[in-house]
Design a protein around this nucleic acid. Structure first.
Lengths: 132, 132
DNA sequence: TAGTTAGATGATAATAATTTTCTTTTAAGT
DNA sequence: ACTTAAAAGAAAATTATTATCATCTAACTA
């Protein structure tokens, strides 16, 4: 994945810290602020938490990344992809993407409600097969 | 709505503060901590924010109430009802219930994923007809 | 390729959000 | 009424997030 291009397309300067953040986010799939901070410190031992927050906010504003807010648990961040849903195991805490047609759901709801939809968040929580 | 019964069924003591919180939550439909605190102080001028948090947490634990976490905005709380979805207008901030069959969605996902589902959160954000 | 500049970083302080602690009070069962 | 476990309220403590500011660097230009 070309993170430099991704930043450039979003009018964000390319910095080693940002590349590191995106790399970690990509590897983890879905990562919380604290996990991200713990990991990024291995590469940039003096990185500031403020820098992390500022970058997360900058990338959220341009929609380069997305915030996933599931009930009960801390927010996690992912690189924006085609719309999809999430599955969370409340035992092991793992997040998974699921290819569920959220766009279709959004259209249905738009039609009946008269709203102009620009985001659909579908998060299903339960126990994964391993944890049952 | 019988809040005393609701509390009793959840093994929570009936206190005037709790009745007030439930009343306000019911009237507002979906309410944030700060809104709730501002409103409840009109009835109980010396209520502590700690009391509010403790009660919210106690009621969440028994599932008497539910936390609705939408992207971009603060969490809101509602009295638990039959499963439904939410529509949020990011202009006026209003939350609305929508009668979308989230249980059916959960079943579909359970079947293909092998997860045991116990919660489904579907939140659609956009612009409401008034705000367009 | 050096010079310029807007924007990024990191340190720290400030603010906001939430939880803990502890003493006093009260709900609810004897 | 008496007892007791739990709740309320005040305050402090903790955690999360944002703001400030001096220094540094990415990226553009001559």
């Amino acid at each position: 994945m070309n993170y430099e291009l991704l930043l450039k397309q979003n009018n964000l300067k390319i910095t080693p810290q940002r590349l590191g953040i995106l790399q970690l986010m990509h590897e983890a799939g879905h990562i919380s602020i604290e996990e991200l901070f713990a990991s990024i410190k291995k590469q940039f031992s003096s990185i500031s938490l403020a820098t992390l927050y500022k970058n997360i906010n900058a990338m959220l504003e341009t929609s380069l990344i997305k915030e996933v807010k599931a009930p009960e648990v801390k927010a996690r961040y992912e690189i924006s992809k085609t719309p999809h849903a999430h599955l969370v195991c409340h035992v092991c805490g793992e997040f998974k993407d699921i290819h569920f047609d959220v766009v279709h759901v959004a259209h249905t709801i738009a039609d009946t409600s008269g709203y102009t939809i620009n985001d659909t968040s579908l998060i299903v929580s339960g126990t994964c097969p391993k944890c049952q």
